[in-house]
Write a protein that binds this DNA or RNA. Structure first.
Length: 599
RNA sequence: GGUCCCGUGGUGUAGUGGUUUAACACGCCUCCCUGUCAAGGAGGAGAUCGUCAGUUCAAAUCUGAUCGGGAUCGCCA
């Protein structure tokens, strides 16, 4: 070993010991005859002092040290002079009085400082990720991520789960996201696809009698990136046999509470998890991933609004649309500037417009509301009585702002749920110490696709219809609810799971609803259907996003910050410069001819 | 594919038609300095302002295109 002690370890109790440390030169403070070095390794910082009275050679060499050089230093741990202690450092009461120094490697001046309080362009950080990861915050992130997966491994092992790896080179099943594909050299013109999730494999493992499987599995989706979406991401994927929905939920709940309690001990975490049916969630929040850390629930006001003289409302109501809204408390004094911004925000979510009704705080009550108390662009179409009624229905008080959107129910819900989150941000309603964990359950199995003019799986095709809804499968698919559940944390989808179909006939009927042809079914799902005919146990499970979980634990918005080597928004790795062209010889071996797009 | 924001020494920013030989902070280099810890002091180097084209007597500054980064809608069973 190049060292016998880590930089972060020495304390007053170890004063007097002769040690050797090795690490990176974090900072140098050169006083001429006295030189200080902050030496950094994975455990922290240790101040090293070079005094020519103890070693002239070491002192001379120390003068030539530069940031990020890798050095090995031997010396004695001494108590610092009184008044020279540094309370910021765990090792701040002592220092290493160096007698010997060996330069293990020099370093160019790094493109940015290895420090937490830096603000460097993402591209530069990723290009020099190996330096970026030296920052204490990034080191902490890597360790946090490890601790999360460690807890998962331990917990699931204790609960009888077996970790099993599944293939990365598999077959394209083009429903859902776009696949990443890999050409086959041995089979000209044929391609593997990287898994979007190990879904069918884990179901096959249930048929194999594994009963409890898990995997920290990499998954791949060739879709556009976002702050919370990378082309390759990691899921805790697991599956259990002989379970009902509640059994799956119970396992996840225990695991996640353990993780949050251990890694975020100061947070207030939902225990037990909140439970909302899909219908209730849509009704109250307009989304299947509501942020439950604040109120501002949605109200449907179609009927009342339609009785006003406002033509927008009448038109939407008579064409079967919906009018909904919510109350932004204390925003009755919003000026033109504020409301314009909210309107722009609503429009960016797809709304035609945003109707707001501001109630002046000087009104003694809703009943005593007078014309002067009301501000709204639709004011001349809204009678006092209608405004009062709307206020009562939405729960608005004097001084509040009602935000109302009209349109198709899908659009209205999208806009209002986005707007609700936006208002929470503006009003700072979220206690960052709160962690809301919620189950959203009883999802519909199918949703109608207007573009394709057919039923599509709302989540995925393997979810089991509720037994009591099986009767609607052929007659009214939109009515069929499934044993399908999402885990939602602070308004983000953290994972999705279901009790699966384990019966070939039911699975075939589900494929029938979404209009898959016989050949198509056989091609994509043949192996699963065949397996179902050889004694498939009832089973269910989940896929849970690891990157998002770690991001929440680390207090980060972007999962880029919790992935060691992430890609940019254009799916590029700036460090390796991937993707890249390959040689003509490689192309030839793979039987591939490249046709570049025009322009 | 759409919309929005950003691109100026190594890093982060200022400068938004002409007294700018492009400014500031940090970093870097040299020298001084025995108790600093974001050390301090003195001096110095380092940028054709992402790229290309256009407008203009004059462009970091205006226009267009393009490239790159970020946010977001579509997309993500």
């Amino acid at each position: 070993m190049y060292k016998d002690t880590n930089c972060g370890e020495p304390r007053e109790s170890t004063v007097g010991s002769l040690i050797t440390v090795a690490g990176w030169v974090h900072r140098r403070r050169d006083h001429g005859n006295l030189i200080f070095i902050d030496l950094r390794d994975r455990s922290g910082l240790l101040q090293v002092v070079f005094n020519p009275e103890y070693s002239e050679a070491a002192h001379e060499l120390a003068g030539s040290l530069r940031s990020e050089w890798v050095v090995q230093i031997t010396g004695k741990i001494v108590r610092r002079l009184p008044g020279a202690e540094n309370p910021e450092l765990p090792t701040g009461t002592v220092e290493l009085s160096a007698t010997k120094i060996v330069v293990l490697n020099k370093s160019l001046t790094p493109p940015f400082e290895v420090s937490d309080d830096i603000d460097v362009d993402d591209n530069t950080r990723l290009k020099y990720r190996f330096i970026d990861l030296r920052r204490p915050k990034m080191q902490a992130m890597l360790k946090l991520r490890h601790r999360v997966t460690h807890i998962m491994w331990d917990f699931l092992t204790e609960n009888g789960f077996t970790q099993i790896e599944t293939p990365i080179l598999l077959k394209s099943t083009p429903e859902g996201a776009r696949d990443y594909v890999v050409p086959s050299r041995v089979h000209p013109g044929q391609f593997y696809a990287l898994p979007q999730s190990p879904q069918q494999l884990k179901q096959l493992l249930m048929v194999s009698g594994v009963e409890r499987y898990f995997q920290i599995a990499r998954s791949f989706r060739d879709e556009d990136l976002r702050a919370d979406r990378q082309p390759e991401f990691t899921q805790l994927d697991f599956e259990m046999s002989f379970v009902h929905q509640d059994d799956v939920m119970a396992i996840v709940e225990e695991l996640y509470l353990k993780i949050f309690h251990e890694l975020l001990p100061d947070a207030t975490v939902s225990d037990p998890f909140i439970r909302l049916s899909y219908t209730e969630s849509m009704e109250r929040f307009g989304t299947d991933k509501p942020d439950l850390r604040f109120g501002m629930e949605l109200t449907t006001i179609t009927e009342t609004a339609a009785t006003s003289d406002a033509r927008v409302f009448q038109a939407v109501a008579s064409s079967g649309g919906t009018i909904r809204g919510f109350v932004a408390p204390g925003c009755g004094n919003y000026g033109r500037r504020d409301t314009d911004r909210l309107t722009d925000f609503a429009k960016s979510s797809g709304a035609q417009g945003l109707v707001f009704i501001a109630l002046d705080e000087s009104a003694p009550s809703i009943d005593a509301l007078e014309d002067d108390h009301i501000k709204s662009p639709l004011k001349k179409f809204l009678s006092i009585d209608i405004v009062k009624q709307l206020a009562n229905e939405t729960g608005a008080k004097p001084g509040d702002l009602m935000l109302i959107v009209a349109g198709t129910s899908r659009l209205v819900n999208t806009v209002l749920s986005n707007l609700r989150n936006e208002m929470a941000r503006r009003l700072e309603l979220v206690d960052e110490n709160d962690v809301s964990l919620a189950w959203i359950y009883d999802f519909p199995l199918f949703e109608w696709d207007d573009d394709l003019n057919k039923w599509e799986p709302a989540h995925h095709v393997f979810s089991s219809p509720k037994a009591e809804h099986m009767q609607y499968l052929d007659t009214d698919p939109g009515k069929v609810l499934a044993d399908l559940y999402d885990l939602v944390c602070n308004g983000q989808e953290m994972g999705s799971g279901s009790i699966r179909i384990h019966d070939k006939d039911i699975q075939t009927r589900v494929f029938g609803v979404i209009d898959y042809g016989e050949d198509e079914i056989q091609d994509r799902f043949g192996q699963l259907l065949t397996a179902f005919t050889y004694g498939a146990p009832p089973h269910g499970g989940m896929g849970l996003g690891l990157d998002r979980l770690v991001a929440i634990l680390a207090g980060e918005q972007a999962i880029r910050e919790v992935i060691a080597f992430p890609k940019t928004q254009s799916a590029v790795d700036p460090l390796f410069e991937a993707p890249a062209i390959i040689t003509d010889q490689q192309l030839e071996e793979l039987h591939i001819r490249v046709v570049m797009p025009e322009n």
